[in-house]
Design a protein around this nucleic acid. Structure first.
Lengths: 275, 275
DNA sequence: AATATCCGTTTCATGGATGAAACACAGTTT
DNA sequence: AAACTGTGTTTCATCCATGAAACGGATATT
């Protein structure tokens, strides 16, 4: 075997040249220029030790060996073509966005027709733990602190405050959201031994607060925008933080990533609960 | 569809990564380094808009989508693998050599065990008209004059003389080889209206001369080495010429072409009929 | 607990694959 | 016959895909 590996893409290019009877006609379908196709056909012939074409000034004619190879190339194409055409939303690019639960709620609510008209499929991954961007668990992250990883880029997109919310000022029991988020830890520390409700999902905290059963610690961009709730007391200084939009250096020049960063940045900066 | 074409070789690389469970293990089989494989897998995932792997520090695990793709990649491999392994003499490279009829005879006789031990399949194309090296009708040509085409390289490999040969000095009829070679034209011009025999193949001229039926014009490296023939008269000055080994600039660095040039040059220079 | 090992990711210099432009050749059109 | 057109080949500047080296993280070994 030749010391270099057989490049399967040579088969794709071969098929285009054979189908169009020449280099010029194959150029558009294959995405390669005529000089490149010419060179790649020479490489293919040498690799297979076969003469695949009879070259003329008017085009490339297949030899018998070339015709035999063409059958095989078309068989390969019958497998490969559906892979590329059946890929979901082929004109859409998936962008994975990792953010805290409430930020994800905000972003979902912020999706509008302009954002939905972009050729982007947003995949929001609501998670409290940070997803691993170098390992591509997400492409974009909304973090509560700046990252200093040299391969990640970040920019500040606003500030977040938390406060206690309830349906009325007399509600006493707390909602304690399980977990290790700063707000969860804060409630665990400050909630008295009074009756409290424990929930595993932050969304349940909101439900309980609205129903009047208990009071919950919520970010103000959620609490302030929930009609059935009022803010009880001042915002909680210990829980306030900046918000950072984080992305891998390599990915941020990709068109769909650039567009997503713009949309997310704008959406987060539209939060008017803080100046 | 993404503006760039789908590179089928990404499927080959994907299959290797999936099979070995990671980049490092796939490196040797695929012929690509781990960083390159990593990048190509990202490109593939982006192109297909799918998540094919779960990336860990200990390797790449396939997702369900990745497993589905692996089945298809293996189907493609079932078609492609026989193409590359059943290519004839896969460790041999075919080298097409275009030369005149008699030069081809000389070269065939010169093949020895050393030349046959080379990983080269010689394809001698005996032709009087020059084959088109830019269009790869041949890789190496033996010509009777120097070429000045800028993309072709040439070097002189000896001198050729022609003479009349017969089984004895009394043979009168000529053998006239049809065609437009200098020797054919010479015979047409000088042969008297005496009885003559016309043949289409130069080898037939040799046969007729040996059988004593007629006399033939042959190159001395053939005539002098045929036991049943004697040279009649002096060599023919009008037909003598240098011999040139011609090759495409691009091809001559290829290992098998370099070896073939060496063998052919040595074989032609071993012709001792001229100093 | 400390060290070694393996694998993936990051950085960056480099070589080679690429394509634009020009040229050559043959066929077509006027 | 002359001009035009289409296609392949050649030339060469450019840029990008690549891999070596280094680094980071997790697991295995001692």
């Amino acid at each position: 075997m030749d010391e270099t590996q057989f490049d399967w893409d040579d088969l794709r290019l071969f098929m285009a040249v054979a189908k169009h009877g020449g280099l010029a006609g194959a150029s558009e379908e294959s995405g390669k220029s005529a000089p490149t196709l010419g060179r790649r056909m020479l490489i293919l012939e040498r690799h297979l030790n076969q003469t695949l074409f009879e070259r003329k000034n008017t085009g490339y004619d297949l030899t018998e060996q070339g015709q035999a190879l063409m059958q095989k190339a078309m068989s390969v194409n019958n497998i490969v073509a559906p892979i590329t055409t059946s890929a979901p939303y082929t004109e859409h690019k998936r962008v994975k966005v990792s953010a805290g639960c409430w930020t994800t709620v905000w972003l979902c609510r912020s999706l509008n027709s302009i954002a939905m008209d972009q050729p982007i499929t947003y995949q929001f991954i609501a998670a409290d733990e940070e997803l691993d961007i170098p390992h591509r668990e997400a492409v974009i992250g909304v973090r509560n602190k700046r990252v200093t990883h040299p391969s990640l880029a970040s920019r500040r997109v606003g500030h977040v405050e938390f406060a206690v919310y309830a349906s009325n000022a007399e509600v006493q029991p707390w909602v304690h959201v399980l977990g290790t988020t700063p707000s969860a830890l804060w409630v665990a520390e400050h909630a008295s031994d009074n009756a409290k409700v424990e929930v595993s999902h932050p969304r349940s905290a909101l439900d309980l607060a609205v129903s009047g059963v208990a009071k919950a610690v919520l970010p103000r961009f959620i609490g302030d925008n929930e009609p059935g709730l009022i803010q009880v007391g001042e915002s909680i200084p210990a829980l306030q933080h900046d918000r950072w939009l984080v992305c891998h250096h390599d990915d941020r020049h990709l068109p769909e990533v650039r567009q997503a960063l713009t949309f997310i940045g704008d959406a987060l900066l539209a939060d008017t609960t803080v100046s």
